[in-house]
Simulated scan of single mutants.
Amino acid sequence: MTQTTPVRVRDLRHDDPEDAAAAAETRRAALPFMLVTPELLAWEAEHSPAEAHYRLLVAELDGAVVGTARTGLFFDSPEPGKAYCNLYVHPDATGRGAGSALLAAAEGHLAGLGARSVYTWALDDGHSVAWAGRRGYEPRRKARFLRLDLAVLPPETAPPAGIELRTVADFAADPRPLYELDAAVSLDEPGEVEREPIPYEDWLAAHWERPGLDRDLSVVAVDGGTPVAFSLARTDGRGRYMSAMTGALRDWRGRGLARLVKNRSLHLAREAGCVEAFTGNDAGNGPMLAVNRWFGYGPAADEWHCVRELG
Rank of each mutant, 00 (worst) to 15 (best):
L31D: 10
A93P: 07
A161V: 10
T5R: 04
E309L: 13
E164R: 12
T2F: 06
D16M: 04
Y88F: 13
N263W: 00
R255I: 07
G254E: 11
L268I: 03
L56R: 12
N285K: 08
E201C: 03
W208S: 09
N86S: 02
R141S: 12
T37C: 07
A143F: 13
T37W: 10
L257D: 08
H127N: 04
T235Y: 05
P175H: 05
G63C: 03
P159M: 07
W203I: 05
H127T: 10
A233H: 02
A52M: 14
L146M: 12
H47I: 03
L113G: 01
H90T: 05
E156M: 11
A30G: 12
P197G: 08
R27W: 08
R240N: 14
A221V: 10
A23H: 07
V193H: 04
L213D: 02
A115E: 05
G63Y: 04
R27G: 14
Y119F: 15
A169Y: 04
E271N: 04
F74R: 05
V118C: 02
W43M: 05
G126E: 11
E192L: 15
N263K: 06
Y137I: 06
F74H: 14
A52Y: 00
T167Y: 03
T157A: 14
E138A: 13
M245I: 13
L257W: 05
G311D: 12
R13K: 11
K142L: 11
A172T: 14
L123M: 13
A172R: 15
F171V: 06
R270M: 05
R147C: 04
A69V: 12
D149E: 11
V193Y: 02
G298A: 10
V58D: 03
A115G: 08
V222C: 08
P190N: 06
E303H: 14
S265D: 06
A105C: 05
A104S: 11
L257H: 11
R27F: 04
N292E: 10
L113F: 02
A229Q: 08
R141W: 10
V185C: 08
